[in-house]
Write a protein that binds this DNA or RNA. Sequence first.
DNA 1: CCCATAAATTGACATCCATCGATGCAATGG
DNA 2: CCATTGCATCGATGGATGTCAATTTATGGG
Lengths: 125, 125
Amino acid sequence: MGDTVQMPFTETRPVPEAPIEPVCCAPASREAIGTDEAERLARLLKAVADPARLRLVSLVAAHADLEACVCDLTEPLGLSQPTVSHHLKVLVDAGILTRDKRGTWAYYRLVPGALGSLAERVLGL
Amino acid sequence: MGDTVQMPFTETRPVPEAPIEPVCCAPASREAIGTDEAERLARLLKAVADPARLRLVSLVAAHADLEACVCDLTEPLGLSQPTVSHHLKVLVDAGILTRDKRGTWAYYRLVPGALGSLAERVLGL
DNA sequence: CCCATAAATTGACATCCATCGATGCAATGG
DNA sequence: CCATTGCATCGATGGATGTCAATTTATGGG
């Protein structure tokens, strides 16, 4: 601990705007997003970062009255009914779809602003 | 095989616009996205659907000259250097970041239109 | 030359996740 | 009251994924 050794090396890297900085890290000019915000956003993105779920969202949005039941979605997706129900649950839990059970059927519907700009621009809905 | 049994049940569901439909599935009014398009989009979304990678993108965008090396990102992320390098590789492979090695350091930079509306609107960059 | 530093790669590990078959449960019609 | 249909849940399973320690590779300085 009582070493009198000077800093062994510590190369200086050419910092573009602030040439006084002794070490690597130049300071950020703006604020980056926090960990909690990142986790919240990641949860939403994970919900749609799947081919089956993207197609589900698109299929529901493309359907006649903007709603669809599981039996409407199983065949065009080419997946088993339990798998489709699983994906729908993920989307509902993420706040992207709503579930409305009427009689024997369960109708799924898009939550209007849930996907933000994603739906209108990226997905072209 | 030679059964003469009639259709056993086949309940009719109230279809909102087309009351003639005999079975469940009402036709889609618009086209849904295809499987290949869904997979392509899902790959891009998977790349950012992670808290660490979201913060990496945000940190790079918030940095002084809009570029940053690994040593700039390891500490604020609180992850090991190999893990940060791994996430950066995922982002580069997805076409979201570019890697430019100058000397000992590797500088990462945002690809302008890669995230589409995601960057400007959802991430607030 | 050898060493120090930056970063990528490797290997291992734990966890998550997409998928399916089987089962359970609710509602509806006969 | 039973059979059928739509849908959710359970259990299992194979594959992807996030993380780290250890190692390797590249670069530059003494």
